[in-house]
């Protein structure tokens, strides 16, 4: 394991250097083919491309709501982990998705998530999915994530 980050690097910095493997290393993430495009402390942006196999309505070609759930769940989880001072896994306690308007077929969906509050054991998140901007949102999500036991910051590279 090559080490270009100092041991004092914060989790979000290490995560930011390894955006591709953040989702590429997860079979379901690969299958959904979403990518993380940008990461700051407690804030994550991503793209969910349109794919034939993700269509939930064969008559309109619109992507299934479950794809958005996976996408926003993942982004929210990353926003939660990236907001912590120490490297820790988080696991979704619950997630609520509101479907505001249908996604348009054959268009990629942009997403962003933020962790807006942290307690000793729980991270609270908000997330948005849209085509152009948050003014015209397709779905929003509110999540709560349990913070698991600490692990080494280097282990973040092995996602």
């Amino acid at each position: 394991m090559e080490d270009d980050a100092t041991p004092t690097a914060e989790p979000w910095q290490v995560m930011g250097e390894n955006l591709d493997i953040m989702t590429g290393g997860i079979p379901w993430g690969r299958r959904m083919s979403f990518r993380v495009t940008k990461l700051e402390k407690g804030r994550v942006w991503g793209v969910q491309p349109w794919k034939e196999r993700l269509v939930g309505d064969p008559d309109t070609g619109v992507i299934h709501g479950g794809v958005l759930t996976s996408f926003l769940d993942n982004l929210s989880g990353m926003a939660a982990s990236s907001s912590l001072e120490k490297a820790r896994f988080v696991s979704t306690l619950d997630l609520r998705i509101d479907y505001m308007r249908p996604a348009e077929p054959h268009r990629e969906i942009l997403g962003e998530a933020e962790c807006y509050h942290i307690t000793r054991n729980v991270c609270f998140t908000h997330a948005w999915a849209y085509h152009e901007s948050r003014d015209k949102v397709i779905a929003t999500a509110a999540g709560a994530f349990a913070i698991n036991k600490p692990r080494s910051v280097e282990s973040l590279r092995e996602f």
Binding site: W28, G29, M32, G56, V67, S70, D73, L95
Partner: peptide
């Protein structure tokens, strides 16, 4: 993956 189970439940 939680998202896979959630999608299954929604369907």
């Amino acid at each position: 993956h939680g998202g896979a189970i959630a999608a299954f439940l929604e369907l």
